[in-house]
Amino acid sequence: MYFRRGFFIIVLLTVFKSSLIAGYLYKDEIIFNSLFKSDIEKLGSELYQKTGVSLRLIMLKKLPDNTNIVAYEKELIKDFNEPTILLTFSEIDLKVDILANDTSLYTLFDKKQVLSPVASPIQAFIMALFYSEGWSSFKEIATNSNGTIIPLLAQKAKDDELLGKYSGAMFNGYADIAEQIAKSKNVVLENAVGNANQNSIFFVKILFYGFILYGIFLYIRRKLYIKRQNLE
């Protein structure tokens, strides 16, 4: 009788502890949206079941005082024993980072690409032309593109659109990491966003190229105007 009770309590505690740890939207101090949480949980749960990798999203309002984002992640990741990757965003600090508790996990996805502030190779090339200070600097900037988080976070938004921007950008990055891990493990995720993930970045690229073309148009028009003035 007592053995059965004790066994039952142990099972309950194990299940309860597992349910606490299972949240792939591990912290959310910003969004508080049931659909956003559901999408993260479904994708994170499927990724873990098929690859054994736990990808957890941390949405902070602000980092603790005198703590940088990497130090915060290093302290938090001590709570997890299984292969774990943290994707962390702090709104007020305007910081995003990714940390894994095993260096081998970085071979499953491209951290530099996910966190790139540049949306496309052409944009990266143009930035390299303007901001590089040498050949090595040029190569570094020109090859750092296809970011799936920061280009979206950098877009202007009204106050009532900020939560949509944050949730869209972070889910975009979360899905990108999950899909890269799945591809590395040769598995298919049924909850992957696929083309929808790329469409949001495509929109950012269209805006960027639109500004570039508009700038070229203004430059040519100015040159033609000056030429006409000189002829007169």
Rank of each mutant, 00 (worst) to 15 (best):
E82P: 00
N68G: 04
L115T: 03
E140F: 09
D65R: 13
L99N: 02
G147A: 04
V96M: 06
I92W: 02
D39S: 13
S120I: 03
S132C: 10
N33E: 12
T88P: 05
P83W: 02
D110W: 02
S38H: 13
A71Q: 13
S104P: 00
L76I: 10
I122P: 00
K112Q: 14
L86M: 10
I126A: 08
D79K: 15
L115Y: 03
G147V: 03
L55T: 02
F80P: 00
D39A: 13
Q113W: 01
K95M: 13
Q49D: 07
L60I: 05
L35P: 02
F36V: 11
N33P: 03
F89E: 08
I98S: 00
K95Q: 15
M59L: 15
S38G: 12
M127T: 05
N33M: 07
A119E: 02
V96F: 03
Q49M: 05
D65G: 09
T103K: 14
A100E: 00
I150F: 06
S45Y: 01
K42V: 06
L86N: 04
G147N: 03
I92L: 13
E133I: 11
S45Q: 10
E91M: 12
S137V: 09
F130P: 00
S120N: 09
D79P: 00
L108R: 00
I141Y: 07
I40G: 01
N68I: 08
L35Q: 15
S137H: 12
V114H: 00
K50H: 01
L43D: 00
N68P: 02
I98R: 01
V114Q: 00
S104L: 11
L57F: 04
S120E: 06
K95L: 10
E46S: 04
Y48W: 12
R56H: 12
F32K: 14
Y72M: 08
L60A: 06
L55V: 06
F109D: 03
L76K: 13
F125V: 03
A142H: 04
A100G: 08
N144A: 07
L94Q: 14
L43I: 11
G147C: 07
A128I: 10
F125N: 06
I141F: 10
F80V: 08
I69R: 01
I58C: 07
T51C: 09
L43N: 00
I77D: 01
K112I: 11
G147F: 02
I40F: 06
L115E: 03
I126G: 00
G147S: 05
A119I: 06
F130L: 13
A71R: 08
N68A: 03
